[in-house]
């Protein structure tokens, strides 16, 4: 695992990908911070929360090549013909992308230090947002890695993970739209409005249950709980395991 991690992490800096991701993140976080700073209302928690909107761009950039490139170049054969086991390959790549996020995030830590040194406040809510950010990063990176494993085109991998992450970010909107639409549909069919509304509500709640943003929304107020974090980790493990299965399956290629 360490070997794969090391190679993938270093290869971010042998190509423009690592630099682009870091530059993009630095620019976005710097822009938000400076704007807040100018108004005298620095709020690290809200800065970190704004930065979450850019998972949808940055995660596809840093994960699209992880497996797709191996397949295109024929280097994936190394994983199958050496004694290394495939899950540690997946884990190594995951860790490389996660660490790249860690490096990008140094920006925010610098902003924290600057805020502190200007007698600003870095409260428990800021730390809560940081924790949530990293757990969400795990979740989204696992999706990006899965996307990269199911195709040998980086572009398709990027589009796939972009859509998946977009859907998750819009989950609260999607859930109420879906709930309302189904309630309306049922009442159109003549179902009593009380029961059609409760079906709609159930659907909204059901979809919301999947929403990692809603689950972790209390962290910014300093109210921590373990369950949402376990949810994120489980979600990531499921996608990493699916990735592993996809790689295993390749051996049995039928097409």
């Amino acid at each position: 695992m360490i070997a794969v991690f090391k190679r993938e992490f270093l290869s971010y800096f042998r190509s423009p990908v690592g630099y682009i991701a870091i530059a993009l993140f630095s620019f976005l976080s710097g822009y938000i911070f400076v704007n807040n700073f100018a108004t005298g209302a620095v709020n690290i928690a809200s800065e970190v929360i704004s930065l979450r909107s850019f998972f949808v761009v940055i995660v596809p950039i840093i994960t699209m090549g992880l497996f797709a490139e191996d397949k295109k170049r024929g280097t994936e054969i190394l994983y199958y013909t050496s004694p290394i086991d495939l899950f540690s390959v997946v884990a190594g790549k995951f860790l490389a992308a996660f660490c790249l996020y860690g490096i990008m995030f140094v920006n925010v830590f610098i902003h924290m230090i600057v805020t502190k040194s200007c007698d600003g406040i870095v409260d428990i809510g800021a730390w809560g947002s940081v924790i949530v950010f990293f757990f969400l990063a795990m979740l989204f990176i696992s999706i990006g890695i899965f996307a990269s494993a199911i195709t040998d085109s980086q572009i398709i991998a990027a589009i796939f993970s972009f859509i998946m992450i977009m859907v998750i970010q819009l989950l609260s909107t999607i859930s109420s739209l879906a709930g309302n639409a189904i309630a309306a549909f049922l009442s159109m069919l003549g179902v009593a409005s009380e029961s059609s509304n409760s079906v709609g509500e159930a659907i909204t709640n059901g979809i919301n249950w999947l929403d990692p943003f809603a689950k972790t929304s209390d962290f910014r107020y300093g109210s921590f709980s373990v369950a949402p974090l376990v949810f994120c980790i489980s979600f990531a493990i499921v996608f990493l395991f699916l990735t592993f299965r996809v790689l295993e399956k390749k051996r049995w290629a039928k097409s």
Binding site: R7, S11, R14, S15, R73, G74, T75, E76, I77, L78
Partner: peptide, 9 residues
């Protein structure tokens, strides 16, 4: 058939 090389190393 296709040597498994990493061109960036």
């Amino acid at each position: 058939e296709l040597p498994p090389l990493y061109l960036d190393m």
